[in-house]
Design a protein around this nucleic acid. Sequence first.
DNA 1: TGTATAACCGAAAACGTTTTAATTATAAAT
DNA 2: ATTTATAATTAAAACGTTTTCGGTTATACA
Lengths: 342, 342
Amino acid sequence: MSEKITIYDIAEKLNITAATVSRALNNNPKIKESTRELVIKTAASMNYKQNKLALALKSGRSNNIGVIVPRIDSNFFASVIRGIEEELHPHGYQVIICQTHESPKRENENLYTLIDAQVDGIIMSVTDVTTENDGAFRNVLEKNVPLIFFDRSKHIDGVSSVTINDFKGGYLTTQHLINEGCKSIAHLSGDQSLEIFKNRFLGYKQALLDNGLTFKEEYVIPVKSFVDAGKDAVDVLLQLQTPPDAIFSSSDFAALGAIQELRARNISIPKDFCVAGFSNEPFTKFMELSITSVDQSPLEMGKMSARVFLEQVDKTDTIKIEKKVVLAPELHIRKSSSRSSS
Amino acid sequence: MSEKITIYDIAEKLNITAATVSRALNNNPKIKESTRELVIKTAASMNYKQNKLALALKSGRSNNIGVIVPRIDSNFFASVIRGIEEELHPHGYQVIICQTHESPKRENENLYTLIDAQVDGIIMSVTDVTTENDGAFRNVLEKNVPLIFFDRSKHIDGVSSVTINDFKGGYLTTQHLINEGCKSIAHLSGDQSLEIFKNRFLGYKQALLDNGLTFKEEYVIPVKSFVDAGKDAVDVLLQLQTPPDAIFSSSDFAALGAIQELRARNISIPKDFCVAGFSNEPFTKFMELSITSVDQSPLEMGKMSARVFLEQVDKTDTIKIEKKVVLAPELHIRKSSSRSSS
DNA sequence: TGTATAACCGAAAACGTTTTAATTATAAAT
DNA sequence: ATTTATAATTAAAACGTTTTCGGTTATACA
């Protein structure tokens, strides 16, 4: 249909050379003002559009940035991606998304694929830190492509990260539960090989100790981030000789499951049992019995990650600046743990 | 750091020409088996990676596909995108995401930007059908880039779409409310210039008529998809001479707001008032008073859109095949409208 | 008038592929 | 031994830019 028109076409029309056209369009100062205007005008009249692929090949920059997340259909990750997109869009970057589904193999693949596609940077939340897939990461660093971790990070020299203070999140929540009068607080923990879960746990533990409460290993239940996992955890906890009177869950979904199971057993919340979650998923505030949770400000996290990327992308220095941004967690106290107001 | 190595490097090493290398790597049958193996082996040993940008320039195909949505941080859109990504990933496509934030201007921009970036196709949910931005769409069609609408569609010749049967969704839900004994059913409607909302409304209306109930204009309240909009709507409805005894909302969020407002007024749900929503947002099934809602199978919708794209992308015919896929809505009956079980 | 300098523009290479057309090597047929 | 057919490879163009390096032309200065 509409023929592709190139700088050669417009050069031919004006009896000048393509180089001049290119320079004129790029505001190169070595071009006479009159010809620049002429070029720009006829370019517009011919409906010229720069071929981004040619530019990409020539410059080696694709103007794409890759984002790798476990999955996109979670409110947290979707919000982070939204933040990234909104921050980068004005700078002309397009966002390419990849999912790992928590599979290290997929994570590896995605890393290689993105490098192959010559993205200008990669922003990601790590799926797994235990398996040895350093090859893929080393490949990224060797290619000098800026790499930024968000939320789930990994210790690699020269790699920046944007996270929240999970320790503080765990500490604040536990302290809050203690303030509400809870004496024996259990913890539903995600995979502690991931730092975020490790730190939430450590914050929880420290708050207990700082308040003179004893830490019990049996109160820490490993869970996946599913509703049913929360139910099962309650089942286990209530069979202990001294069952707890509160739960701090590192997952909102598990917290929800715990609440459902507690109510099924006619245990009154928050009167006899308090529950708090983590992530501030939308449903936590929609429930009739709204759920206390820690907000991770995902939108801000995305924007911040994007900003860190922008800082690094044009640094010609081979010296890598390693920037660690730590956002403050925000505890949203709701009915599931508010004894004072109920 | 690691030098970029090209097919010229490996050609030089083997004393052959780059063309042969290219053909060998692409399994061109005109290459002797022995040399092909040799080329592949040394390519691997030299850690050769094909330059995708060069390939893109040469072939005119970027292997990227653009997805335009109002926003990404909604469960529905995120799930659709997940479906698209999962279906297209095995075919080597990368997914580029753009948001419009319901702004026709942004929608236009995104369309032009994606075409500029020479994506191989565009899958989108239309933001606005009233404003005249046909230029951007015409531009897409002229460039012969496959365009697929999902959910929110627009009538353009030669453009395929994947939607659900919104009429049926509205009809089923309304019929269900009638079956539960509701006599006067109100409807919270989204912007009816969008077909999805128009059709949900028409399904609602038809179900009323088919059951001998009178349709009242005053029972139809326009709402945005926010919780507060649902509250306001209830406020209006209860001030009517004959208030309704049920609500079919085209938005789960508005349905939630309605429920909150009804309970605040001590109206018992579902005994005295039934409520049903649309979209099957995750929170609808998490609530203690779970909310009846229509599932749009977003994952399937995304996968289907991707499949339609794949069908079209390699058609060399200039004849456009216009494919209209209509998925079946699935009514999830829950507590907010189940009198039988409560 | 001659020279130096700056301003402006052109020629051609470069980015790394694929592909058309031409050429050589090999085998088969006469 | 010579032609013919075919298989395998090469040479070069093409995709659409940007950019290095020169080359004019004009201007300024002596």
